[in-house]
Structure formats: structure tokens, C-alpha cells
Design a binder for these strands. Structure first.
Length: 666
RNA sequence: GCCGGCGUAGCUCAGUGGUAGAGCAGCUGAUUCGUAAUCAGCAGGUCAGGAGUUCAACCCUCCUCGCCGGCUCCA
């Protein structure tokens, strides 16, 4: 009998009867893994387990709980869902159904809207199919034949995809450039069939539906075909799948946890902020407690910036249209600006950015090279017209305050300035409890240089400067083409919160365009006039968004230095109030934000109130404490500490009052 | 902006083609209390706004506004 030799990941050579599939190989060498392996790889290329390996192939198995295996699992579940949808709604037309970060979706064109109540119906049908242990059968055919097949079935979206494949060799013509080398060849495409459902798909898939043990459909949303507003809106059904029920449960619990931390809910419950319909969407009211947190953030921010050579300024919120014309905002940014107002025959516009004002401060004097770098900072409130559908609590608003600064510098100072900003940004994030970050270098799209202001050569220079800083920093970063601002390339800084979610906050943007537009100059050592470079930067991004992120990160339980109320003092009975006042006075003098709760309620009730409002320290004072100048201390989260002298408590709290800022000693 | 869903008291939510209810929060009173909810009473709503159908609309229809989930966009 003929044999073939294949190479296992260990490097071992395995002799295999010719014509046996990977599934059979698995049974021979790893019977214990059966049911946990969803696919294989031949020479690194993912394939179905039903594939018969050729002689000499490097063979690997893909486990269900590996990231790749999970993707395959979810992809197959998307197919299962589509099969169920097709049975329930025979008129449905299918677009695409890929696995994503937390699960999968399928975009489907349905003749009528899908009510949310239908999700359990679809899910039930999926379970029925799952129980039938339907195999995922791979069918290969030439593109032309596939086109005819999809046309007869009325699958117009699949036809469109196939036409793209026929023309470009890939289903995504927008990526044709980067895929040039690896585009499918041979004019063959593959389908996967489970019962009557046949779907164009590269694969691989799990062998049969019995592998799909734990899944759930989560929600429905609209999505444009190919993501473009010009195209029809499809119904997108989201779901998720995991190797085990337990893992699925855990995921659903995490979703629940995210809901529990929702800053919109906590913001209302904790009296931090509100957004009122009468004022308008995306416009935030900071209530006293939220404002207190903001004050602490701002004070810390100002101190750090002064310490690092920034000069802080205040500038107006509106300016004559002419200014925005000179700055280029009217040509590049008008879609995002509130419409103007007329005053004394002059058009004024509300500012969407702070830069022109800082530029005019720079330009108000003749500047010498000795003045550079010239760093102007401002917690500057701006207004941007955001389309109504994108607004979201504090995370996406129309009026917000940027922790903005503009650095005017000589070209040779650029790199060290950018490096300093990056260092400051990361240090501040750490102080707020975000040790993890993610950096993205956004550069121009060489194919569409008309989108950008300035010369190609300037762009080149700025982009390589940013790249060098990032490389020297030693931090990992992604490089994305086409994401630059209209005036220059940038580094975007995202933080990672306690649930592992990434939020973009900081940004460092190089600008050689504005200095030119405003004809900025400085007198160099040579006595001649030179053009400075400009760096726009924000570290927290906007105070609104950052506050929203903070609320969710901490679930409303802010660390001591940020908490709006740091200590609640509860006198047991009315006669203890003078002593409560005395303790409060001492804490207050030390700079602690303290509140006495002398309401006519039992101690248990008031402790509960302090706990649910996330006050970090609770101090109960009764006869015993009055007697010995003591405080009965309780920390947020059920820890009862017992009594201690007020002096001891004060010492402890004093250490907690300041942000944990670590950085270069200046 | 687009697709879908939603909008009843400050909050969470019941409710029916025949002029609206609970819990919590609020207020008042009693209670003076020792580590996560003391008891009683009171008050609170143009049922998002507008138009229409109807003898009668919170309920049915249309429009507007807002919110939610996504898409597109983004700090």
C-alpha cells in the first residue's frame, strides 16, 4: 500500500497511508484531541480536516480554543446561522458573514425588518440543525460556474463578490494592492454546503455542526453593504460562539459587567453629569460631583504641564470666519463645524479646534530661536458638529474640552519634542490607572495626496520623524496609511481599560501647514527669518471622553485622589455631631474632601448609602470614638478596619491625596 | 445622516380604545439608633412634542424631537 510522509510541528516525520485525511491522521496520533481540533494547516495554510495532505507537507492541527480555532468556530457558527435564516426566510439574500473580535455577524438582505423577537426563533432553528450533525461540505468550482450558480439563486451580493474575484483575484478590490502576491489563483472558488444552504466561502470550517456547542445570537443592527453609505442597508445579525458553555457564560457575564459599568448609568446614579434634551444632544452638564473630579484632573494636568515648560493660556470660543479661512478649516473641516452667526455684519464661527488662537498668540510678538520650543497649553472647549447617530454619552459629544497644546519649534527640535510629549502622555495615563497603551502611527495615503495640505516632501520628513521617535521609544506601534489629519501625520495613543477595551485619547500631530498659512516665523541665530514647525497634541483627548472612560474603568469607584467625596463621616446619634464636625474640620484642613452624613437614618442605612455612592472611606463616630479621639474606619468594599486615632487616619489619607505620578524628576 | 428598536413620576418599570399604577428616590412626622435599606403619612405624570382617525387616544395612523444597538465618521 502506498504511503506519504508528512512533517509534524515537532519536526517528526509521520508515515501515513496515502489518501487519508487530516481527520484520520488526527485519530491516529492524537485521538485524545478529537472534537477539540477544528481544522488543520498544511505548510501554514489553514485547511479543513477533511483535506488529504500531500507527501512532504508540514502538518499542523488547529485547536478550538486557539485564537485561530475560535475564529473558525465562529465563522462556522455564522454559516449555521445563515442556514437557519435561509430556512426561515427563503427570500433572504446573503452578503458576508465573518468572525469578528467578540463573535461573528452575518449581513443579510431581508425583504422586511427583522424584529428582535425573531432571534430566539433563529437560534432554535440553529440548535435543530446543530443537533443533526450536518457536515460542512467543501465544493470547489470555477468562478464562471459559481457566477452562474449564484445568479440562478438570486444571490446578488455573492454575484458581486464573485465578479470582484474574477476581476481582481480577491473579494476585496480595495485591498488588491496589498494582496497582489497572494490573491487566489487558478480561477477556482470554494463553497461550503450544509443541507440546502450553500455559501461562497474560502473556509476552512469545522467538520460538522456538532462542533458548534455553545453559541448565542446577541443583537440586530443595520449595516451598509460593503460599508458604504451609497449602498443598501442590510440587516446585520450579531452572535457569538465559544468552545464550551462555560466560556460562553463567562463572556455573557463580561457583557453584563460592561453594562453595569456603563458611564451613562453611573453618571446619573452618582450625580456626575447629565445630558439634557432641552439643551441639545452631545452637550454635557457637569454636576457638582463630576465637576469636582474634573477639577482634580485639571489641577493635576496644569501642574504637570507647567512643570514641563508649558505656558497655559485662555482663548475665545468664537472667531471671525476669516480666521477659519486662513487656518484652512473652512476648506478642510467645515462639515464638522457648527454653522456661523452674524454679528455687526461679520460672520463668526464657533471653534472646532484651538490651534488658530494659539498661533495668533505666537505671532503676536517677534519670536527668536531662543524662544523655541514655545509650548502653549489650554484646556480648550471646542464644538464640533457630529452626526446625530454617532453621539454616545460622554464618549462622543458635540461640545468638549481638549487638553490641548501647541508646540512651536525648530525642525531640529521636533524629534525631542515629540519624544517628550509621548513620555508625558504615557506617564499621565499611568497616573490615572492605565498602565497599558496602544500606539498608532497614522500617515498619509500615497495614492491620494490631494487629500492633504502641504508638499509630499514635507510629509515625508514629518512621517519619518514620528517613526524614529516611536522606534527609539521601544514601544510597539501600528502604522496605518491614509489616517493622517489633513495638515500632517500623527501618533494616536489609545489606553486599555480594565475590561481590556481600547480607547483612543491622546494624539500627537505634526503640522507644517498652519505655520505657513499664518506665515509664522522666528529669527534664527543667523539673524534671518525662519519658519517654525508646529506640533498639535492632546494627552487625555477630551475631558468628557476621558471622564467617561474613567467612570467605566473604575465602575464609578474612583481612586482616593480622584473621588469627589473621599470620606463620609457618620455620627451614630445626634449627640455625636459636634465630634463629627471636629473630625471633618481636621480632615478638611488636610485637604481631604469630606462629607458628614447626619441624616436621621440608622448607621446601617448611611453606610449603605456611602457604599453605593462609592465613597472610599467611611468613618463612624459614636460614644467610643468621642471618648478617645478615635475614628472607626471602613474602606469601600466591605472592609471594616476597626478604630484608630484620628491622627493615624490623617497620616494615611495624606499619602493618598496625590496622583501616583512617576516620571523623570525635573 | 442611514437601518432597526424604544420614549408612562427624578430613577427602574407595570398598564388598558372609556379620563394612570408599583418600588426606590423626594417631602413631613415619629424613632436617637454602632457597621450594606426603621416605621408611618404626603406629594409627584399635558403618558416626549405636534397633527389626524374616533363619541372617546397613553393605546391606532402620520410627522417632529430625543434615546438605545449598529453602519459611516471620530477626541
Amino acid at each position: 500500500m502506498a504511503h506519504v510522509d508528512v512533517i509534524l510541528p515537532s519536526g517528526e516525520i509521520q508515515r501515513l497511508e496515502a489518501g487519508l485525511s487530516l481527520a484520520e491522521l488526527l485519530r491516529q496520533i492524537h485521538a485524545d484531541l478529537e472534537g477539540r481540533v477544528v481544522a488543520g494547516r498544511l505548510d501554514g495554510k489553514p485547511v479543513d480536516l477533511s483535506t488529504v495532505p500531500p507527501a512532504g507537507a508540514r502538518v499542523e492541527l488547529v485547536l478550538m480554543d486557539s485564537p485561530e480555532g475560535l475564529f473558525i468556530l465562529r465563522h462556522s457558527t455564522a454559516h449555521l446561522m445563515a442556514a437557519a435564516v435561509q430556512e426561515l426566510y427563503p427570500e433572504a439574500k446573503f452578503a458576508i458573514g465573518p468572525p469578528v473580535e467578540d463573535g461573528f455577524y452575518y449581513d443579510i438582505d431581508l425583504p422586511r425588518p427583522l424584529p428582535a423577537e425573531d432571534l430566539p426563533v433563529i437560534e432554535a432553528r440553529m440548535r435543530a440543525l446543530q443537533a443533526d450533525r450536518l457536515p460542512f461540505v467543501r465544493v470547489e468550482m470555477p468562478v464562471e460556474e459559481a457566477l452562474r450558480l449564484m445568479e440562478t439563486r438570486g444571490e446578488t451580493y455573492k454575484v458581486e463578490i464573485l465578479e470582484a474575484i474574477r476581476r481582481y483575484g480577491t473579494s476585496r478590490p480595495d485591498t488588491v494592492e496589498e494582496l497582489k502576491g497572494e490573491a487566489e489563483t487558478g480561477g477556482m472558488v470554494s463553497f461550503y454546503q450544509s443541507r440546502s444552504f450553500l455559501d461562497l466561502c474560502r473556509g476552512p470550517h469545522v467538520p460538522d455542526t456538532s462542533f458548534l456547542r455553545a453559541f448565542k445570537l446577541t443583537h440586530i443592527a443595520g449595516a451598509y453593504w460593503r460599508g458604504s453609505e451609497q449602498n443598501p442597508m442590510l440587516t446585520r445579525i450579531y452572535g457569538t460562539a465559544f468552545p464550551t458553555e462555560e466560556a460562553l457564560e463567562q463572556h455573557l457575564y463580561r457583557l453584563e459587567e460592561a453594562r453595569r459599568r456603563d458611564h451613562r448609568r453611573l453618571g446619573r446614579e452618582l450625580g456626575l453629569f447629565s445630558i439634557e434634551e432641552e439643551i441639545g444632544p452631545g452637550l454635557v452638564l457637569w454636576h457638582p460631583k463630576g465637576a469636582l473630579v474634573r477639577e482634580v484632573i485639571e489641577a493635576f494636568w496644569r501642574k504637570e504641564h507647567r512643570r514641563r515648560g508649558y505656558q497655559l493660556v485662555y482663548t475665545p470660543h468664537v472667531a471671525r470666519a476669516h480666521l477659519w479661512d486662513v487656518s484652512g478649516h473652512l476648506s478642510w473641516y467645515q462639515d464638522n463645524m457648527f454653522s456661523g452667526m452674524e454679528v455687526e455684519g461679520q460672520e463668526y464661527l464657533v471653534r472646532p479646534m484651538n490651534c488658530p488662537f494659539h498661533i495668533l498668540i505666537y505671532r503676536s510678538h517677534t519670536r527668536s530661536y531662543r524662544d523655541l520650543p514655545f509650548r502653549l497649553g489650554e484646556l480648550g472647549t471646542v464644538y464640533r458638529y457630529e452626526r446625530s447617530g454617532v453621539l454616545h454619552g460622554l464618549l462622543r459629544v458635540r461640545g468638549f474640552t481638549q487638553d490641548d497644546a501647541h508646540i512651536f519649534c525648530r525642525p531640529e527640535q521636533l524629534e525631542s519634542e515629540v519624544a517628550d510629549v509621548l513620555e508625558l502622555a504615557l506617564a499621565m495615563l499611568r497616573a490615572f490607572g492605565f498602565p497599558e497603551h496602544h500606539l498608532v502611527l497614522s500617515v498619509s495615503d500615497p495614492a491620494q495626496m490631494t487629500k492633504y495640505a502641504g508638499s509630499e516632501e514635507e510629509w515625508q520628513r514629518a512621517e519619518s520623524a514620528l517613526e524614529r521617535v516611536l522606534e527609539k521609544s521601544g514601544f510597539a506601534f501600528d502604522r496605518v496609511e491614509g489616517e493622517a489629519a489633513f495638515y500632517g501625520p500623527k501618533i494616536d495613543i489609545s489606553l486599555v481599560d480594565v475590561l481590556g477595551r481600547q480607547w483612543q485619547c491622546g494624539t500627537i500631530q505634526i503640522d507644517f501647514n498652519m505655520p505657513e498659512r499664518f506665515d509664522l516665523s522666528y529669527i534664527g541665530e543667523d539673524g534671518r527669518s525662519h519658519r517654525p514647525l508646529m506640533v498639535h497634541r492632546a494627552l487625555l483627548g477630551s475631558l468628557e471622553r476621558f471622564f467617561g472612560i474613567l467612570i467605566e474603568h473604575y465602575g464609578g469607584a474612583f481612586p482616593f485622589w480622584l473621588a469627589p467625596v473621599q470620606v463620609a463621616i457618620l455620627p451614630v446619634a445626634e449627640r455625636h455631631e459636634p465630634y463629627a464636625q471636629h473630625v471633618a474640620g481636621r480632615l478638611d484642613t488636610a485637604g481631604v474632601r469630606v462629607q458628614i452624613d447626619d441624616r436621621n437614618e440608622k448607621v446601617g442605612y448611611r453606610i449603605r448609602q456611602a457604599e453605593v455612592t462609592k465613597v472610599p472611606y467611611i468613618v463612624v463616630v459614636g460614644d467610643r470614638e468621642v471618648e478617645g479621639s478615635l475614628a472607626s474606619v471602613r474602606e469601600r468594599g466591605r472592609r471594616e478596619r476597626g478604630t484608630m486615632p484620628v491622627d493615624t487616619l490623617l497620616d494615611e489619607l495624606r499619602d493618598l491625596l496625590h496622583p501616583p505620578m512617576t516620571g523623570p524628576a525635573l
